[in-house]
Amino acid sequence: MISTVLLKKYGASEIHLEKREILFKVDTQARYFYQVNSGKIKMNNFNEDGKEFIQGIFSSGASFGEPPLFAELKYPAQAEAVEKSSVWRLEKESFFKLLRENPETHLELTKVLAGRLHYKATMVAEISTESPEHRLLKLIDYFKTHIHKIPKEEPYLVELSRQQMADLTGLRVETVIRAIKSLEKKKMVQLQSHKILR
């Protein structure tokens, strides 16, 4: 999203994370802007029973955790490396200076945040009212068109695991497996070597 050149110009440093390493925890005060350089980062919570709920998965070029930074709040979720990853970290005041001095970048970031708000509002409605099949199709289509920018008419090979799909939609993994099989029978998705194609 924000170019590496611009991030470095304003003093960003690169942090390297191993798989499952925590970048920041729930209730930590937001002090930095973060953007994935390589690998994948997820923001997640756990309920009292230990069930994970994934707020989002972010790959190369995507930023994460900005709302608490803007609002001077603590993080409502933790950030964890899904795989070996590197992340750009920029101190809060330097980040705000970057945005003030680069209005086009500020506008692009605003568009991204607006898209995430729209996704959250859509998924809240889906989780509370729609069937597992419908929720999964919404999730897959969102990742296809908004995250990976693949045109609707082109095939999309889903990178998410069944467990990640469950954690993103509030479903049990067994329910996801059954729903995917049902969607395959209805010819709404295809399975290729256990991978989902939409």
Rank of each mutant, 00 (worst) to 15 (best):
F33K: 04
P68Y: 00
E93F: 08
T145W: 02
L107I: 09
A166C: 08
Y142C: 06
I147E: 08
L136E: 04
E130M: 09
E108R: 12
L73G: 10
F143C: 04
A114L: 05
I196M: 04
E80G: 03
S86A: 05
Y156E: 07
Q55W: 11
K42M: 11
D27T: 14
S85G: 04
F58I: 02
L183D: 04
T110N: 10
V189I: 10
V173I: 07
K9Q: 15
I41H: 00
L113P: 03
L109R: 11
G61S: 07
K19W: 02
K51T: 11
T110I: 11
V173L: 05
P68E: 12
E80D: 05
S161C: 03
A79T: 00
A71C: 10
P68A: 15
L73P: 03
T28Q: 15
K181T: 12
S85T: 00
K51V: 09
V112M: 14
V26C: 09
I150W: 07
L197E: 09
L99H: 06
E91A: 10
K149R: 09
S128Y: 08
I140Y: 03
F96S: 06
K9P: 01
E72K: 07
G65Q: 00
Y156V: 01
E108P: 02
A79R: 01
R20N: 14
V112C: 12
Q35Y: 09
E18M: 09
R178K: 15
K92M: 02
R89V: 07
R116T: 01
I2K: 00
K40M: 12
M123D: 03
F33I: 03
P76I: 03
N47Y: 08
D49R: 10
F95Y: 15
S38D: 13
S85P: 04
K186Q: 13
H148V: 00
E48A: 11
E101N: 13
Y10W: 12
I127T: 11
R89A: 15
S59W: 09
E83V: 07
N37R: 13
T129R: 11
S63C: 14
P67T: 13
E133L: 03
L90M: 01
S182V: 06
G170L: 01
Q55V: 12
Y119E: 10
S3R: 10
K120V: 12
I22M: 00
I127P: 04
E159P: 09
V26P: 03
H146R: 13
M1Y: 07
T110F: 08
K25N: 15
A125D: 14
K185D: 13
E153W: 02
E52Q: 14
K111Y: 09
L157V: 09
L157K: 13
K185F: 04
Q55M: 12
A12K: 00
M43E: 13
Q29M: 14
F143W: 09
A12P: 05
R135M: 12
R116G: 07
L99Y: 06
T28H: 14
A125P: 00
L73N: 14
I196F: 02
K185L: 07
K138H: 08
G61W: 02
P76W: 03
G170H: 08
K186L: 10
V112G: 11
V5Q: 14
I196Y: 05
N44G: 12
E48M: 07
I177N: 14
T175M: 04
T129K: 10
T145A: 05
P103I: 12
S193Q: 15
Q78S: 14
I127E: 13
T129V: 02
S193K: 15
